[in-house]
Design a binder for these strands. Structure first.
Lengths: 199, 199
DNA sequence: CATCATAGATAGTGGCGCTATCAGATAGCG
DNA sequence: CGCTATCTGATAGCGCCACTATCTATGATG
């Protein structure tokens, strides 16, 4: 972790500046190190952009903001934004997403970035000629619910606001990477059992 | 989809060139359009790089290669590669991953990119002070297994090699995006039920 | 026949995550 | 006390990536 990189993060507002003990000497404490580790995790493992990390960190640090708003901000920043020009397919996909949300009884805004991302993905599937993949959607949603419950259970261990918010951020971002890797492993296993050597 | 962009894809080896009917006229068919849609899906929704897409497409088109090898190539290209300098934490994380693989009975190479990605993520969790998140690992693995089974079931519908391989590619890449969005929705729902308005 | 579009090639653009360089100031050693 | 190594903040530049603009030669088109 080079010094110029750290100063870059300070400039970008990801990291508070060190306390100046003299015009050319600054001291950094454990909180800085902790924050740096968080930045690297979000950047390397979570794949967030510096801009997204800045917003997430601003939300974490803004202690005046209600927790559920912070969580909303964090969730929104972590899904890549699509600005889709309105087409025929995306409208149908949005309908599909709305129906799923209703069927699940999820209390979520059907225009949230996550819902939109789902619609975009479903539309792309359709475009590519694999619209039938949505047969698996219920299984996916079941799995997502289970995982989300586990996430919440973990988060419930943390009571202090600061900890609570950070645990959600970390869990959400890292959880994606972890699940993705696990899915890949499970797929490899399943696939080997079916196609192993043959075909 | 601009013409220069298409020509760029041709240069990059993502798309076969159109058939020249004269020195300044080329004709593109339905297969080209289909391939373009696949490229956009992998790029926009899957977040793959052009280089990764090239390798994936090469693997798809290399009809001599055994199917399970193609699937391996595809899976490996879709995981961002980490080249971690050996440290203390990563070794422990790798051990954790190995234990999980053994416990699950997964027939996978413990040094596959997916296993490595999982280890990196677990190490990052530890570094950030949220090592306890691994309590949820079993739930995650269960969910991953279910999803992988659903994936395989979908893939089983396709018998022709060309279709088979492509369905795996699409399913793997888009599945990540879909699950991620679903998880976000499920989390929002769960989180709202707990923190909704309060706190 | 004049204009316009297209193929192919080469060079350039904009965004992003850093990184190199510079001037000014001081820590710290002899 | 002097001198050099090192730090600070500021500015400019780099390398990668996904395109995009420009150019020339050639042929389509009204």
């Amino acid at each position: 972790m080079s010094v110029p990189t750290i100063k870059f993060y300070v400039r970008e507002g990801l990291l508070p500046a060190g306390e100046l003990t003299s015009p050319n000497q600054a001291s950094y404490g454990e909180t800085h190190v902790q924050r740096l580790r968080l930045i690297r995790a979000l950047l390397d493992v979570g794949g967030l952009s510096v801009a997204a990390i800045r917003e997430v960190i601003l939300a974490i640090d803004d202690s005046g903001r209600p927790v559920h708003k912070v969580l909303g901000t964090v969730a929104d920043r972590m899904v890549p934004r699509y600005d889709r020009e309105p087409g025929a397919g995306i409208a149908e996909a949005r309908g599909q997403v709305g129906a799923l949300i209703a069927a699940r009884g999820w209390r979520v805004h059907p225009e949230s970035p996550a819902a939109e991302a789902l619609a975009v993905a479903l539309e792309a599937l359709e475009e590519v000629g694999h619209g039938a993949f949505t047969e698996a959607l219920d299984t996916y949603a079941d799995a997502a619910e289970r995982v989300a419950r586990a996430d919440l259970e973990y988060v419930a261990h943390h009571v202090a606001r600061e900890e609570l918010v950070e645990s959600v951020v970390v869990g959400t971002v890292m959880g994606d990477a972890i699940f993705s890797a696990l899915r890949r492993l499970a797929q490899t296993d399943a696939s080997d059992r079916v196609f192993g050597g043959a075909r």
